[in-house]
Every structure is written in structure tokens, then in C-alpha cells.
């Protein structure tokens, strides 16, 4: 497709190419990505990160060649010094001042929402825990119910009952963290359907999280602000392993497995 000469003059100019790329990138990140199926709005911190990366890319593009770099500077130079562009100059001055003012106001004004916090999602589990007086070594620990295939259906049914009696209000009917009480919590209850939660974890990790709840989270990375109860006070060991079976069965995820002998340490936590 041939562009009209008037438009092509701008389309071929590195300055306007740079402006166009930045505008398109912003539109794509802020408006198009949220519209994609199953997507959501992009947090401001990520928008800033992406735009900074694109800006660096654009600056590299316009300056990695002497001719292009000179052409890129032409309109800026002209706007700053040419008499005929006095109005544009004043307009840019006002626009930049307003922009800086708005950004500053956005940073300092008082709002009712809590400031965003940096939350780590993978608390490091201890090597062993004490469950109702019994010491359990988490490293290398598998779900013992999986070794009993005959009773698996019964265990799943037990897990389902435990889930609906205890977990449903927060983690929801779809196991997606959208229970009736979910909106009252920050951080939100874990979404088991997300590929970033139980799909990345060993069952021993999930057992530790259910058994010890929010109060059992490690000292580092505090405050966790987790509302998860200490379920070992209410559920038996079998009930917890059963509900773990149910979580994986319902979501279709497979629990993370341990590496073979001598390498068991590398199999948990993150991917």
C-alpha cells in the first residue's frame, strides 16, 4: 500500500516513527491486552516497566545510526529554537508542566486504597514440621493416599466434603479464589485454577500451607497478611491429604514431583 506523500513524509521520519511506536505500545498494553479473552487490566507497575523497555528500544533505534539520529533531533531542535514555532514551543512547555504536575499529584494525593505491596508468593517451607506432635520431613514427602489406589475414590469424596465444608467460602465453588468472602481479603485467597499456584508445588508444600496456615508462614517476607486458618487444629492428617487430592483432581493440575535420589532438593518451590 502506497501512502500519500504528505503522510509518507511523517511515516519515514524517525521522530514520528518513535512517537508512533510509543503510542501504539501504550494502546496495546493498556487497552488491547485487557480485551483479549480471559485477560484483565495490566497493573500500572507493569505498564511502566513495559513502556520503559519500549522507550529504551526506541532510543536505540533512533540513535544507532548517525543519519537517523540527526534526523530524529531535527524537529526537537526546530521546536526549541525556531521563531515560527513559538506557539508550539509554548504549547509543549505547558503540556510538559501539566504532565509533570499530574504525575506528581498522582503520587502524593491521599487515596482510600492501600498502597500496592510487594508480596512474595512462594514462602520457603521448613525442612520438617510438627503436625499434632508428630514430626514430618517435608523434603521428598509424597501424598500417602496415592499409594492406596483402592481407597482413592473414597479419599476423593472425603476431600470434596472437607473442601465444601471448610474451604468454599474463600476459595470458591470453582476453586478460583472467588468465594463469597474473597473480596474481603487482601491478599486474595489462592486461585487453584491458576497455573502459578498448586500447579507449581509439591503436595508436601500444599500440606504444610494447609496445616500451618497464615500463622505458620516463615519470618522472612513478613507481613504476609494471610487469613488462612491453621487447619491442623480442625482437620486430621488424612482429611488434609484428601483435600489435596481433591484440589489436584478438580483442577486437572499434576503436583510437582521430586527429583530422583540424591537430587531431591531441586524439585520444589519455583519453576
Amino acid at each position: 500500500m502506497r501512502l500519500p506523500p504528505g503522510i509518507r513524509r511523517y511515516a519515514d521520519h524517525p521522530f514520528w516513527q518513535a512517537v508512533t511506536i510509543l503510542v501504539l505500545a501504550y494502546v496495546l498494553i493498556v487497552f488491547v491486552i485487557p480485551l483479549l479473552p480471559g485477560s484483565a487490566l495490566v497493573p500500572k507497575s507493569v505498564v511502566l516497566q513495559y513502556m520503559a523497555t519500549v522507550l529504551v528500544g526506541v532510543l536505540i533505534y533512533v540513535s544507532d545510526n548517525e543519519g537517523r539520529w540527526r534526523r530524529f533531533q531535527e524537529p526537537i531542535r526546530a521546536m526549541l529554537i525556531e521563531r515560527r514555532l513559538k506557539l508550539v514551543r509554548a504549547g509543549v512547555l505547558v503540556a510538559v508542566t501539566l504532565l509533570v504536575g499530574c504525575l506528581t499529584l498522582g503520587q502524593v494525593r491521599t487515596t482510600v486504597s492501600a498502597p500496592p505491596n510487594l508480596r512474595s508468593i512462594h514462602p520457603a517451607p521448613p525442612a520438617d514440621i510438627t503436625f499434632r506432635g508428630k514430626t514430618m520431613t517435608l523434603t521428598g514427602l509424597e501424598n500417602p493416599l496415592r499409594r492406596e489406589p483402592d481407597s482413592l475414590a473414597a479419599d476423593l469424596a472425603l476431600g470434596k466434603r472437607v473442601y465444601y465444608q471448610n474451604c468454599l467460602p474463600c476459595h470458591g465453588d470453582h476453586l478460583d479464589g472467588q468465594g463469597h468472602y474473597a473480596s474481603g481479603f487482601n491478599p486474595l485467597p489462592a486461585n487453584f485454577q491458576d497455573n502459578g499456584t498448586i500447579a507449581q508445588l509439591t503436595e508436601s508444600f500444599v500440606f504444610w500451607r494447609i496445616a500451618k496456615g497464615g500463622p505458620g508462614l516463615p519470618r522472612e517476607g513478613t507481613p504476609w497478611n494471610s487469613a488462612m486458618p491453621v487447619w491442623e487444629d480442625f482437620l486430621s492428617e488424612r482429611e488434609i491429604w484428601s483435600v489435596i487430592l481433591f484440589l489436584y483432581d478438580q483442577t486437572g493440575w499434576k503436583p510437582r514431583t521430586w527429583e530422583k535420589s540424591g537430587e531431591q532438593g531441586a524439585g520444589s518451590g519455583h519453576d
Binding site: 480471559g38 485477560s39 495490566v42 507493569v46 508480596r119 478460583d176 491458576d194
Partner: peptide, 8 residues
């Protein structure tokens, strides 16, 4: 729906 973006 959490701190993981469903798409990104």
C-alpha cells in the same frame, strides 16, 4: 483475581 495476571 490475584497477584498473577491471567494473560501476562
Amino acid at each position: 483475581g490475584g497477584s498473577h495476571h491471567p494473560f501476562l
